[in-house]
Design a binder for these strands. Structure first.
Length: 566
RNA sequence: GCCCCUAUAGUUUAAUGGAUAAAACGAGAGGCUUCUAUCCUUUUGAUGUGGGUUCGAUUCCUACUAGGGGCACCA
C-alpha cells in the first residue's frame, strides 16, 4: 500500500511539474491521529512550489482524488501532513491474507537469488563464551533471519581465533595449573587463560616465553603441546555447539584463524611495496594516507596478526562460497563489537587495494558492548559471567513462575523463555549502542520483555482452542463496521520486515511486536473471543489468529521460540 | 595529543528534519465467581550546556561538558 501511495504522489508531483523531491510515507507515530499512513510531501515540496505547505497539500489531495484504490479519505493535518485513511475492506482482506500466507506472512523477494554470508558470535577457542558474546549472536541470528525473510540464500558462519597470543597464554596457564589433555574441560580452559594472562603480565621473561610458545603453536612443532592444543580446541568447539543449540543458531561453517592466516599472509606478502611496507621488522599498512592509522599486518616474528587473518578471511569466504554454492557471495556481513570499528576501516581499506572485487561486498554491523549494571567483567582475570550460567539462572526463574501452569515439557519451555528474555533485552536496543544488562531485570518477565511476547502468543493459542471447542469457526464474512486497532497493526508487518532489514535494525521488529502484543492484550481485555453467541466472534477469532501468526513470525525473526503454552 | 562513538522521564530504552517526544520499570489509584493477571485501565514525570541552519531540530552544523572506544607488532 505504501508503494501505491508513493507512486501516485510521484505521478501527481510530475504532473504539477516537480521532480526529485525526497518525501516520506509512513505509519503515523502521533497519538492524535488514527490515520493509516501519512506523507510529509507537501512540506518538503512547499519551498520549491513557493507556496504554504497546507496550500500545496490541498493541490496534491485534489489531484489524488480517486486515484488510489481502497482509500477511504485523505485529510490535511497539522503543518501540512497528508493523512490517508484506508477502507474497512482493506483490513478485512489483510486478515484473510495473513491466514492464507501463514509462515510466509511478511516475506519479500528483495534478496532472492542472492548469497549472503552472515558472520557472528565469533567466540575464541580456549576462552570462555561469556554473556558478551550473546550480543553479536542475537544480532547476527536476527539479521540472518531477516535476510531469509527477503529470500536470500543465507549462510551463517563464525570466525574463531584458534591461534594467536590468547591461545599461547591459555596453554601456558594450562601447564601451570596442571591441566591434562585427557580430562580437559571448558571451565579449566577459562581458568588456564586467566592464569596465563596473569603470568604474561608478571614478568618480561614469562612474556617472552609465551611469545615463543605462540610461535611453536603456529608451527605445530611440539608433539606434546599439539595434543593439549587439539584437546583444548575440541573441548571449546563442542562447548560452543552446545550453547548454539540452546540459542538457536545453526552455523554452516566455522572459519579458523589458523586457516585464514596463511591465506592472508600470502596476499599481504604479494603486495609488499605497493600496498604494504616493511618497517622495524614488521609488515605494516600506512593508513594515514587515507585518513586512518597505521596497523601491523605481520609482526616481527613473521606471524600474521589479526589484520592479516581478516584479509585472509574475506578470501576464504569467497573460496568457501565457490566450493559449497558454486558462486561468488553477493554480500558478507560481519557482526562485531564497536571497539573494532576504527580497526575495520583500516583492514577494509587495505582489502579494497588488494581484493577490490570482494571488499565492496563486505559490511560491518557493529554491536554495542554489554555492561553489567553491577560489577565489571574480564576474561583476562577470569571474572566473567558464562553465557550458559546466565541462561540457567533465568531458566530457574521461569520454571518457578510456571509451577502452577501444568505445562508439558516445562524444562524446554523454561529454556525458551530464558533465551527470549535475554535476546529481547539485547535486541530491543538499536544495534551498536551499549547495553546495560541488569541480571535482576533479566529474570523479571513483566512489561516489555521476551516472555511478554511469548505469553501473548500462548494466550492466543489458548483462546483459539477455547473458541474452537465453543463452536466458533474462524471467518472474515461478518465483520464489525470499525476495524480493531490491532488489525491495523497486523498489516504493517511486511513493511516492518523490509525496513528492519534495510536499516539492519532488528530492534524495530522488537518494538513493533511489543506494540502489537500490547494492542492485542487490550483487545483481549475488551472483547470476548470464545463466545458462540457473539456474531463477531468468528471474525475476532480470525483477527486473533492473524496476530498469532504475526507474533510467531516476528519472534522467529528475533530467534525466539513461540511456545503454545507457558 | 589525534581520531571515532554516545548523551532523552528517578531507571532502561524508542522516535527516515515534522503533528501535544513514545513505551516499560519504579511510584500512586483501580480491575480476575468471566477466554492463561507473565495481563488490562489510569495518574506521575524527560531531549547535557551555549550558539547556528530551517517554516519546523531529540535528529543537521559548531563550541563546550561528561562518558566510552581506537591510535605498531593482542584479538
Amino acid at each position: 500500500m505504501k508503494k501505491e501511495i508513493r507512486e501516485q504522489i510521484e505521478l501527481v508531483l510530475s504532473e504539477l511539474g516537480f521532480s526529485g523531491i525526497d518525501f516520506a510515507i509512513d505509519f503515523p507515530t502521533d497519538k492524535n491521529t488514527d490515520a493509516d499512513y501519512f506523507s510529509n510531501v507537501a512540506m518538503v515540496a512547499a519551498k520549491q512550489a513557493g507556496e504554504a505547505p497546507r496550500q500545496f497539500a490541498e493541490k496534491i489531495v485534489t489531484a489524488l482524488e480517486g486515484r488510489i484504490s481502497q482509500i477511504e479519505k485523505i485529510e490535511i493535518a497539522g503543518p501540512g501532513f497528508i493523512n490517508f485513511y484506508l477502507q474497512r475492506e482493506f483490513f478485512r482482506e489483510k486478515i484473510l491474507n495473513v491466514l492464507d500466507a501463514k509462515e510466509n506472512w511478511g516475506k519479500n523477494n528483495s534478496w532472492s537469488n542472492k548469497l549472503v554470508i552472515v558472520e557472528y558470535t565469533d567466540p575464541n577457542p580456549f576462552k570462555e563464551l561469556h554473556i558478551g558474546h550473546l550480543v553479536p549472536n542475537a544480532l547476527g541470528e536476527s539479521l540472518a533471519r531477516l535476510f531469509m525473510m527477503a529470500g536470500a540464500n543465507t549462510k551463517r558462519v563464525t570466525f574463531q581465533g584458534d591461534v594467536g597470543m590468547h591461545v599461547a597464554k591459555a596453554l601456558y596457564g594450562a601447564r601451570q595449573i596442571d591441566v591434562q589433555s585427557e580430562s580437559i574441560t571448558s571451565e579449566q580452559l577459562g581458568k588456564a587463560y586467566a592464569a596465563g594472562s596473569r603470568a604474561f603480565e608478571s614478568s618480561e621473561e614469562v612474556a617472552a616465553e609465551i611469545k615463543g610458545l605462540n610461535k611453536v603453536i603456529y608451527n605445530r612443532s611440539d608433539e606434546k603441546l599439539n595434543t593439549l592444543y587439539d584437546a583444548g580446541k575440541k573441548v571449546s568447539l563442542d562447548y560452543f555447539e552446545e550453547i548454539y543449540a540452546v540459542l538457536g543458531s545453526d552455523f554452516d561453517h566455522n572459519f579458523f584463524e589458523s586457516v585464514t592466516g596463511p591465506v592472508g599472509l600470502e596476499l599481504v606478502q604479494k603486495n609488499i611495496g605497493e600496498v604494504f611496507k616493511e618497517s622495524r621488522g614488521a609488515v605494516i599498512f600506512e593508513g594515514e594516507k587515507y585518513g586512518l592509522h597505521t596497523r601491523v599486518f605481520v609482526n616481527n616474528e613473521g606471524l600474521p596478526t589479526y589484520e592479516t587473518k581478516d584479509v585472509g578471511l574475506i578470501q576464504c569466504k569467497e573460496n568457501w562460497s565457490q566450493e559449497t554454492v558454486g558462486k561468488s557471495f553477493d554480500h558478507a556481513i560481519t557482526v562485531t563489537g564497536t571497539e573494532q570499528l576504527e580497526y575495520f576501516k583500516v583492514t577494509t581499506k587495505a582489502s579494497e587495494l588488494i581484493q577490490p572485487d570482494l571488499a565492496g561486498k563486505v559490511e560491518l554491523v557493529a554491536n554495542g558492548m554489554l555492561r553489567l549494571a553491577e560489577g565489571k567483567m574480564s576474561s583476562r582475570t577470569g571474572d566473567v559471567v558464562r553465557a550458559l550460567a546466565l541462561i540457567t539462572d533465568v531458566k530457574e526463574a521461569a520454571l518457578e513462575r510456571m509451577k502452577e501452569n501444568n505445562v508439558i515439557d516445562s524444562e524446554t519451555v523454561a529454556e525458551q523463555i530464558a533465551v527470549a528474555a535475554i535476546k529481547y533485552s539485547i535486541l530491543q536496543i538499536a544495534a551498536g549502542k551499549d547495553i546495560v544488562f541488569d541480571l535482576k531485570k533479566s529474570i523479571s518477565f513483566e512489561g516489555d520483555s521476551g516472555p511478554y511476547l511469548q505469553y501473548t502468543h500462548a494466550r492466543i493459542c489458548s483462546v483459539l482452542e477455547k473458541a474452537k471447542s465453543a463452536g466458533v469457526e474462524l471467518s472474515v464474512e461478518n465483520i464489525p463496521a470499525e476495524s480493531y486497532a490491532v488489525e491495523k497493526l497486523v498489516q504493517q508487518w511486511p513493511e516492518v520486515v523490509e525496513v528492519s532489514l534495510k536499516e539492519r535494525a532488528p530492534h524495530k521488529v522488537v518494538h513493533y511486536l511489543t506494540e502489537l502484543a500490547g494492542e492485542f492484550n487490550s483487545f483481549y481485555a475488551a472483547e470476548k473471543i470464545a463466545d458462540e453467541d457473539d456474531e463477531y466472534a468468528p471474525y475476532k477469532a480470525a483477527v486473533s489468529d492473524a496476530v498469532r501468526i504475526t507474533l510467531e513470525r516476528g519472534l522467529w525473526v528475533l530467534g525466539i521460540e513461540a511456545p503454545e503454552r507457558m
